[in-house]
């Protein structure tokens, strides 16, 4: 079919663009510490080091070599997963920290994306279906509220209300104890501890999906094919979810990549406020401690996560929407 081949061409273009973005990330991540004013050695090698340790590190990172050699070394290190050792937690390898922290942040982001999509989209559909009624007004008003309050403010509010006034949720940490009898027990503990951070991270986007879905549907509901679906003898629910939501869905999906991008930034804030030991907190601490290898690695991983999820969202969008890459 004609559309399949142009779809492939479309995806190929995307792949090329994302590869270019990936290359840019690699370059920027390499350049930033080196273009900052001052001697690169003082940036990469912490001030409190002995001359011996310093020399050893300079050697290890190849910081006394020409720039192009440094770049090759940098690439080799990245592709072998060698991000050096942390200055602040010397001599813990950076990769060890990442491996410990990354899943926690992925969990936080995954939960937040899932919750905002799974609640936000049906809520938007519900509001559009009841356009102008009280249900719609309540949904729109509360979405507007969550859309306008700053995330840090909501975080503090939640800590205050559920940490002090009605202390039903923990306000810090990822788990209550270090040892769990089973994975299920660990997961339950983790979920309980992350209620507040996940709510904080979801609210803004949940409201966003609600608005998007509502707006997208309000455009679609007066369309002929909706009236036709209705007169085919389908029930209201079948018309809404079988005919109105599917064409409204792809534009919402494009927001997914965007949300994950914003979440990476949000993770730094939320993890810091809720003392959640994830990548965001690691990055924040690394910045305070001028722990350059960790900064570089966390930046790299967050950027790759964002890029990867945006890419996936876009591919998914292309596959789902037959109109993309259609008959031009």
């Amino acid at each position: 079919m004609a559309s399949t081949s142009s779809k492939k061409a479309y995806i190929a273009t995307r792949v090329r663009n994302y590869l270019a973005a990936f290359a840019a990330i690699l370059a920027v991540n390499f350049a930033i510490p080196r273009v900052m004013p001052g001697d690169p050695t003082t940036r990469f090698v912490g001030p409190g080091f002995t001359a011996e340790a310093r020399q050893q590190l300079l050697q290890e990172f190849g910081l006394n070599r020409p720039l192009w050699e440094q770049f090759l070394l940098y690439l080799t290190n990245i592709f072998t997963g060698d991000f050096g050792v942390s200055f602040a937690r010397y001599p813990t390898p950076v990769m060890e920290l990442i491996v410990e922290r990354l899943p926690r942040t992925l969990y936080l982001m995954g939960a937040s994306v899932t919750i905002s999509v799974v609640i936000g989209i049906p809520l938007g559909a519900f509001a559009a279906w009841n356009f102008g009624e009280r249900e719609d007004l309540i949904t729109t008003q509360s979405s507007l509220f969550f859309r306008s309050i700053p995330t840090f403010w909501l975080a503090i509010l939640l800590v205050f209300v559920f940490g002090y006034l009605i202390p039903i949720f923990p306000i810090s940490g990822a788990t209550g104890s270090a040892n769990h009898p089973s994975f299920i027990a660990y997961f339950v503990d983790l979920t309980y501890h992350t209620v507040l951070p996940v709510v904080t991270m979801s609210a803004y986007f949940l409201a966003g999906y609600t608005f998007l879905m509502r707006g997208s549907l309000l455009d679609i509901l007066p369309e002929n094919y909706i009236k036709i679906a209705e007169s085919k003898g389908l029930s209201e629910r079948q018309v809404l979810f079988g005919h109105a939501v599917p064409p409204a869905f792809p534009p919402v999906l494009t927001q997914l990549g965007f949300q994950i991008g914003r979440l990476a930034g949000g993770a730094v804030l939320v993890e810091t406020v809720f003392s959640y030991p994830g990548m965001g907190q690691l990055m924040f601490e690394a910045v305070l401690a001028r722990d350059y290898p960790v900064i570089q690695a966390t930046f790299f991983f967050l950027a790759i996560m964002v890029l990867g999820s945006m890419f996936l969202a876009e591919i998914l969008y292309t596959i789902i929407d037959p109109r993309i890459g259609g008959s031009e």
Binding site: N224, Y225, I228, P246, P250, D321
Partner: peptide, 9 residues
């Protein structure tokens, strides 16, 4: 009839 069909089906 130009809009008689759902664009994603």
């Amino acid at each position: 009839a130009q809009n008689a069909f759902n664009p994603v089906k």
